[in-house]
Amino acid sequence: MLEIKNLSKTFNPGTVNEKQALTDVSLTLNEGDFVTIIGGNGAGKSTMLNAIAGVWPIDSGSISVNGVDITKLPEHKRAKYIGRVFQDPMMGTSADMGIDENLAIAARRGKHRTLSWSITRKEKEKYKKLLSSLDLGLEDRLTSKVGLLSGGQRQAITLLMASLEKPQLLLLDEHTAALDPKTAAKVLALSDKIIEENQLTAMMVTHNMKDAINHGNRLIMMHEGNIIYDVSGEEKKKLHVSDLLAKFEEVSGGEFANDRMILN
């Protein structure tokens, strides 16, 4: 489904700030895989997702989705294949536009935009139903500006937007990290539901080891720009946080205690 081969990326090469973010990473995802990705700060988790999404060009390697080589495609063209939710709730939506307008833009992802109306009456009905399924009271605020919504509400809408036009790959980049625990749980449950209902292939970066274990069918641990642990199926189900910690200690030479790691 997704095939990453020998992906490398160095930021600010040749300067004092040089940072080798990804080192020869290869990864193959199967159709319907829901992969959680963990690792310390600077391990390359978000960098990998951004490389797939095409935020900047990579140094070497190749990326293909369902056999289509997207390595050289610009970000907006890859959007045809990829749905994304970001860590910052401000990033995924247009604050000055209505909820319905945001959804309508997302519904046309990967399609040719024309001079017909940006949103039809039929769509509005559909969005109303979708919003009521979120159970956030947003169905009565269809035309409200997204900027008026809370972070959790915005992430929920971004999730809808990412899945409205079924993506071949869904990228969730720590999309609950900026939310309070209760809202984070809600958004996470919604993510599960959307991925399951649409049978999406998804990658989710998280700092929460428990979430990484409890969600998805496969888990990847990254360290210093490499994938150091890749576990799936029954083996993943049996994982405990302590196993991950041990693994982490092993590769980082004992000093695992990262203040952003949430241990339980």
């Binding site: 970000e75 959007a79 045809k80 939506t93 833009i105 046309r108 024309t114 109306w117 940006s118």
Partner: peptide, 25 residues
């Protein structure tokens, strides 16, 4: 109010969102 016009507005409002939704900003 058209699809293209809406894409222009999204470009001005949030380039990240626009690109992620397939708009050539």
């Amino acid at each position: 109010g058209t699809e293209i016009g809406s894409a222009v507005r999204a470009t001005g409002c949030n380039e990240n969102m626009a690109r992620a939704q397939g708009i050539n900003t």
